[in-house]
Design a protein around this nucleic acid. Structure first.
Ligand SMILES: [Zn+2]
Ligand SMILES: [Zn+2]
Ligand SMILES: [Zn+2]
Ligand SMILES: [Zn+2]
Lengths: 163, 163
DNA sequence: ACATGGGCGTTACCTTATAACAATTCGCTT
DNA sequence: AAGCGAATTGTTATAAGGTAACGCCCATGT
C-alpha cells in the first residue's frame, strides 16, 4: 500500500503523491471515526502541497485568504488535531508542521530536513527507535513520545554543493 | 574520567557533580582556546545547578538579578556560545537549554526528559546515531546535525505513578 | 422543540527569538 | 606604550511562535 522509500528527495508525480496520501488520510480518519472538517481537511491539503514543513502562521495566511478564520487558534487547532491523530507531524527544530506521508501505518518516523532546499523526508525509523528504547531502558526511563530530526543535505542539493 | 551512566535520575552529590562538570568544561574551553567570559561562565553555572533545562528568559532573569544585562540577546548569545562549543545543549522540544554533562567527549547525546519532574538526562546515543545515519544513508541524505529527544517517565517518577 | 457538546471565530495576551546599532573591551602589532 | 581590528556586551526595537478564554453556531440525540 505504501512506498518503501520516501519520495521526498526524488523527482516524482507529486500531484498523484499528494492525492494518494490524502486519500489514505481520509480512509484512516474514517476508520477512527474522526471528523475531518473543512478547515482540518484544507490544512492537510495545504501541508500536502509539497514535501516541506510549514509554520502555523504560513498555514493561517492561506486559510485566511480562503475565507476561514484569520486568527492563530484557527490554524493551531487544526494542526494539533492532525498531529494528535497521526495525520501530520510537528518538527520542533523548525517550529513547523508537515503532513504525515504514512497515515495509519504506525511508523516511527525519522525526519530528514535539507538545509538548502527545505525538503523534509520521513524516513523509516524503527531501528532508530529500537536503539533509543534500549538506551532509555538502560536508565529505567519509560519513553512515551519521541522526536528524531536530522538536518543536512539531501542527495539533490549535495550534488549542487560538490560543484 | 566521565561516568558511564548519567546520574540525572539517581540520587547523588550534585554539588560535586556540578563542580566537576564545570571543571571539565573549563578544561575543554582552555583546550579549544575559547573565551569563557563572566556572562558565559555564569550561564553555564546556572545551567549546571540542576539536571533540568532552562528557558533563555529564565536564565536572563538570573543574569539580570546579578547585574548583567537584562535584555534577551545577553542570554541568547551566551547560550548560543555554549551550544556552539559543546558546553551546553539545546532542547527543541522544550525551547530550553541544558548544560552538557560530557564536555569535550564527542558524544552523540539522546535526551530523556521526564514529564513529571522535568529532569533531563543525557543518555549515550552512539547506537541511536548509528541507526539514524544508516537510515539517512539509504536515502542518500548527509546528516549534519541531529536532535534526538524523548519525553516520558524517569524511574523515580514511574514508581510514583504506579501507586 | 430543546439540551448537549464539539468545532470555529475572535479578542487579548504571553513567550520565544532576532536584527541592528553603539559602546566597550581584548589581543595583538608597532 | 600607543594604536588598531576583532570580539564582546548592552540596548532598542520588533519579529515569530503560541495559548487562554469567551461566545456563537451547528450537529446530534431526546
Ligand atoms: Zn510527493
Ligand atoms: Zn508519518
Ligand atoms: Zn548531578
Ligand atoms: Zn552533552
Amino acid at each position: 500500500m505504501s512506498d518503501e522509500a520516501p519520495l521526498a528527495f526524488a523527482r516524482h508525480d507529486h500531484s498523484h503523491c499528494a492525492a494518494d496520501t490524502l486519500a489514505r488520510a481520509e480512509a484512516e480518519a474514517a476508520r477512527l471515526g474522526l471528523r475531518l472538517t473543512p478547515v482540518r481537511r484544507r490544512v492537510l491539503e495545504i501541508l500536502l502541497e509539497a514535501h516541506r514543513a510549514m509554520g502555523a502562521y504560513e498555514v493561517l495566511d492561506r486559510l485566511a485568504a480562503e475565507g476561514f478564520g484569520n486568527q492563530p487558534p484557527v490554524a493551531y487547532r487544526a494542526l494539533e488535531f492532525l498531529v494528535e491523530n497521526g495525520l501530520a507531524h510537528r518538527l520542533r527544530r523548525l517550529n513547523a508542521f508537515a503532513a504525515c506521508m504514512h497515515p495509519g501505518e504506525d511508523h516511527a518516523p525519522v525526519f530528514l530536513i535539507c538545509r538548502v532546499c527545505d525538503a523534509v523526508a520521513e524516513a523509516p525509523g524503527a531501528p532508530v527507535r529500537a536503539a533509543l528504547d534500549h538506551a532509555a531502558a538502560d536508565l529505567g526511563f519509560a519513553v512515551e513520545r519521541v522526536n528524531i530530526e536530522a538536518v543536512g543535505l539531501c542527495p539533490v542539493c549535495a550534488r549542487g554543493e560538490a560543484a
